[in-house]
Computed example of a mutant assay.
Amino acid sequence: MIAVQAAAAIPTVPSNAPEHCPGTESEQAGKSNACDGCANQEVCASGATKNQGPDPALPFIRARMSTVKRKILVLSGKGGVGKSTFTAQLAWAFAADEDTQTGIMDIDICGPSIPTILGIASETVHSSSSGWSPVYVQDNLGVMSVGFMLPSSKDAVMWRGPKKNGLIAQFLKDVDWGDLDYLVVDTPPGTSDEHLSVVQYLKESGIDGAVLVTTPQEVALQDVRREIDFCRKVGVPMLGIVENMAGFVCPKCNGESQIFKPSTGGAKKLAEDTGLELLGSVPLDPRIGKSADFGVSFIDEYPDSPATTAYLDIIDRIKVILGDV
């Protein structure tokens, strides 16, 4: 099992921190050379940012997560690269085995698209004596998302950091996940509150790895490089990179053409430069978007698509890396 480096406290790094920020919990906070000129230097040096004690939610989260075998984060610094779609396909593929219990935790709080992609947007969360019950797509695939808690799909979620962090803690400690083989966590774009919170809350339970999703063009790769840097700073192991929309597949002839030109070498070059594995490239098939709109599994609906083959090869590789085959 790949374990997150959780022996020491994970440093909290402000979003506007310098590149070599030691973190707000470090003894060097506000005092190192990297802190010179930082707007947060004075408050960090005063010690006001340091935690006054362990988060009271951690023991409850540890107890809940003790029944979850694998925890996988799906990350991307860039929005619109198909991260949530990949999360859904990954979970559907895991749950294709009736004996594999799978869960999706959607912490994209301001843009919860997982309920729509899975065809359960109209469902609501129910509570019992054992906690909140996930919404089930099928008997062995449960989902938790803030999307289930909104009065309508048009309602905006306008929350500051502390409220977002509180909901993520509730998803981890109050949801009755039961015995899970896989918990796949769909995250928002970027490296902000939600990412820091889920890493902090899961540091004792262990994160098995992160999958980083990108598209071939440089504008997406730039943000993924930042996501890789985030993972290394907070000690999250990375399973590898997935390249989405790598060419266009004609639904009739299965011929492929290039839509997003990899002007700087695409995900393959990024993987080589960062020492990560390129798990695979998924071509753009317009039926993927159609499947997401109608809440059905693309893999099941279109088994002959080259995109389905790519998805399944990536998922098989993830299982091999995790030691589950």
Rank of each mutant, 00 (worst) to 15 (best):
D106M: 07
W177E: 07
S127D: 14
S127I: 12
E277C: 04
V13Y: 10
L279N: 09
Q28D: 15
N51Q: 05
T67G: 04
M105H: 07
I318A: 04
M144I: 15
P22K: 00
S281M: 06
V325L: 10
Q89F: 06
T191W: 11
I288C: 00
G53R: 09
L312G: 03
G280D: 04
P286S: 02
P262L: 08
S192H: 15
A63D: 03
G53I: 01
I10V: 11
S281R: 13
E218W: 10
C250E: 02
K83A: 02
K78M: 01
G147A: 11
S297G: 06
L270E: 01
A220D: 01
G166T: 04
L221D: 04
S305Q: 06
I314V: 09
R160H: 01
C38F: 12
L118T: 05
D293G: 10
E123M: 00
Q138S: 07
F86C: 02
G190F: 11
I117V: 13
K71H: 11
I72V: 10
F148C: 03
E25K: 01
L73T: 11
W132E: 15
W177R: 01
A39V: 11
L73S: 13
I315G: 01
V137L: 08
L73D: 13
R287C: 11
V236L: 01
M149T: 10
P14L: 06
D139G: 05
A63N: 01
L75S: 11
L270M: 10
E98W: 07
D97S: 15
K83H: 09
S133Q: 15
D313K: 15
